[in-house]
Write a protein that binds this DNA or RNA. Structure first.
Lengths: 192, 192
DNA sequence: GTCTATAAATGGATAGAC
DNA sequence: GTCTATCCATTTATAGAC
């Protein structure tokens, strides 16, 4: 992947997280990058191509993060902390309020091309499996306590944390902080 | 409010829940209602006016639902069941997959007019207070068991259920069902 | 790879007749 | 209240020169 392509995708990622896929234009990218719209079309002929390129990148990034997290010598408890803080930083870091790009694309599911929907499902799968695995291991080791299937609890936690990030746009970071706190209770933890 | 205005708002609500505020056009509405774009502009000169009209309607609807729920002779436990089923039906009912219109607008927060953002916060407040109140009463009566502040647990629950509805677009209704199941555990309930 | 120029379609919005 | 007609800006996308 050329540097330029990479650069374009990075800005596209930011725009998806702030305004959504359908609401940003090649013109927005053109201004950010200082090149013309025509040049952008050279790299990604259709907006759909750009969307797919972005999703491929997101999949690679998520797989890498997952492998880092699972191969590091950390305990399930520490892993879940890292997972939480990833989302917490999402709403603090940016100048313009960002949400999880996956949430953003899910909200636009009836607007984005079908080809993008498929890749979106892959992304979901990776995260679901990751959290499910952490929860399973955590319960086996006695570090985490919860009732029901790890897979179901993972789904609830993922929904909650992503929903909270979206909510933080009107309620501030407290929405995320409080949600994380209660999710820790749901895992039998004491959120100090 | 004239019948026509009401009718327009209803279709706008559906479009916000399916494709989002920025992604539907007066042309979409025109086709659905069988009147021209110009006629739509007569009722709502700017799209922002339509958005505000819709939000006012949503606020009124939510206040009414809240009053019904709180004044009915039901227990907190039954009320929380009604609350859950409201969101569950959201992803089953529609021909085209819908999400909570509030979630949809939150995802577009950097795109919608500032005047709409204010009304969106009011909507959030109503729901937060409602769930907080149900949880408070439920714990006092011993029907519900959870640690931490009712307000914080409410925020987590709201984020989770709305996030799950959004997730159901790629994961099916099970995302919502499983999330509800685990949320019940978090309230000390046995989700049969 | 980047540019200028331009096409074709769509979006929000207005003027004025009926 | 609804229509036709029209305006202007924006958006996606292409052709072809450098």
């Amino acid at each position: 992947m050329s540097d330029r392509k990479q650069q374009i995708i990075e800005h596209a990622a930011e725009l998806v997280a702030t305004v959504g896929f359908d609401s940003f234009s090649y013109n927005d990218l053109s201004e950010r990058l200082g090149i013309t719209k025509a040049s952008l079309h050279h790299h990604f002929p259709k907006k759909e191509d750009l969307g797919l390129g972005l999703l491929d990148q997101m999949i690679a990034f998520k797989e890498q993060k997952r492998d880092e997290l699972l191969q590091a010598g950390e305990t399930p408890l520490q892993r879940i902390e890292v997972y939480f803080s990833f989302y917490r930083e999402m709403c603090v870091d940016a100048e313009c309020s960002q949400i999880c790009p996956v949430s953003s694309l899910q909200a636009e599911i009836n607007v984005i091309p079908a080809s993008m929907r498929e890749k979106l499902m892959i992304l979901d799968e990776i995260e679901s499996r990751l959290v499910t695995e952490i929860l399973s291991q955590g319960r086996e080791l006695g570090e985490l306590k919860f009732l029901g299937e790890p897979e179901h609890h993972a789904m609830m936690m993922i929904s909650a944390i992503k929903g909270a990030v979206q909510f933080s746009r009107s309620h501030g970071v407290e929405a995320v902080d409080n949600t994380i706190k209660q999710l820790k209770y749901s895992l039998g933890l004491n959120p100090q």
